[in-house]
Design a protein around this nucleic acid. Structure first.
Lengths: 142, 142
DNA sequence: CTTTACGTTGACGTCAACGTCAAGAACGTG
DNA sequence: CACGTTCTTGACGTTGACGTCAACGTAAAG
């Protein structure tokens, strides 16, 4: 096993935990996606890693955003919709009007999420009822 | 507004509610999709309407399945995965082994759905906390 | 100093989920 | 029975979300 790349980039005297950075391979590995996927998300503006020369350097912020992206993906949202959502978290909220806009967006998003939750629970309930029926059938076969 | 096509197809003496049928246009309209989408789902084996001559005739069963498909779609599942799920509901459960297979599938599906629910609630919670912060910020601006 | 591993930018390929014509066939209505 | 409406089957186009491949840079390791 070779020396981890992060140890190379991190000077001995610097604190390890705080400002760690990651390579694209590490990030991809950790989140279980390919580097192509990571780059694709960057093309779409979902993450924007630092560049050291030409090489991408990922910070904790990028990992946070990536995990949000992947959760959105697991939930079946299109990537550009995901971007508008997570951009919301970083949106400027200095002026009153901006804050109110953000709050309005939040309401919209929550409505969508709760619609989804209703669908989801309906699906789960239905599955439960179906399982019940199957178990009853099985019992009667004994 | 023209006479609904269903009235034409349904003889005067037949009961209206029980065995009503629908045209592709009616089904599409009712579920808010295009007829192309409905046909696409048929191509993938998600629904299989009766044929009268060359024309598709949709029964209640087809509408039930279609609504399941659309809910699955809202939840972001791929169509072929949706098919395996709703086919489960119509799968033969005569023999014990078949029933046990179905029950195993149900468990799998439920696991996937509950993973999704966790993601969903995490997203909703996060949105709630974020709203809280925004509202606090707004209050402090007064 | 070459090898090897990892990184980078295009550019094209692919697959799912439909959209979009085109060109008939069938059907009820004036 | 002509006619507009609705339905049918292709077949090709499009968009999103990546996969894949080529061609090249670079940096540590042998």
């Amino acid at each position: 096993m070779p020396t981890p790349a992060a140890d190379v980039r991190r000077p001995r005297d610097a604190p390890a935990a705080a400002d760690r950075t990651w390579t694209i391979a590490e990030v991809a590995e950790e989140f279980g996606v390919t580097h192509r996927t990571v780059r694709h998300y960057e093309d779409l503006g979902l993450i924007s890693p630092e560049r050291r020369g030409t090489t991408r350097v990922y910070h904790r912020r990028d990992r946070t955003r990536l995990s949000l992206v992947l959760r959105g993906r697991r939930l079946g949202f299109p990537l550009d919709e995901i971007r508008t959502i997570i951009d919301l978290y970083d949106a400027p909220r200095g002026r009153r009007s901006q804050l109110e806009y953000v709050l309005a967006q939040i309401d919209e998003r929550r409505a969508a999420l709760e619609q989804r939750r209703r669908d989801l629970e309906a699906a789960i309930d239905e599955l439960g009822r179906f399982e019940r029926r199957c178990r009853d059938d099985l019992d009667r076969m004994r």
